[in-house]
Amino acid sequence: MKIIGALIIIFSLTMIGFQAASMFSNRPKEIRRIIIGLQVLETEICYGSTALPQALLHVAKRVRGNVGELFYLASGFLTHYDGLSTSDCWEMAIDKMWGKTVMKKPEKEILLHLGKILGQSDRSDQQKHIRLAVINLQSEEEEARNDQKKYEKMCKSLGFLGGILAVILIY
């Protein structure tokens, strides 16, 4: 009986460790997806002159996971909310999806800032702002990768070792 209990404790703490580790490994992935999405958006806007809702829909099809969903939601809000300002629609989509992603505050700030300009100026201006956002996101991605290197393994082993420690302390 004791052994089974000990195994359960070790297993669950290990899982928690893995979970924490996956946060570190998913963040750069998601930032990468946002970057890809914005690059697609730039092409759509600057070369295709596609209307924003349509362009975001195209982006949503190209980007996987929660990030794709975010673009999809934004596109939907733009079409259905009776002319509600672009930045409000964008913000709503971000607020709705942010909890489901593992991205952090700096990325959110970059995206919110971009939302204020999206669709509101001519093509060259849009391009400048999207590129700026991409550059900023790239530096965040860099940082996220460093964090990943530092903490991912640590979280995993910490979980396992923590489990063992708990078992030792209990007995």
Partner: peptide, 11 residues
Amino acid sequence: TNLISQHSLYA
């Protein structure tokens, strides 16, 4: 303005 331009003044 948003409805006419579909949120896309650049277009």
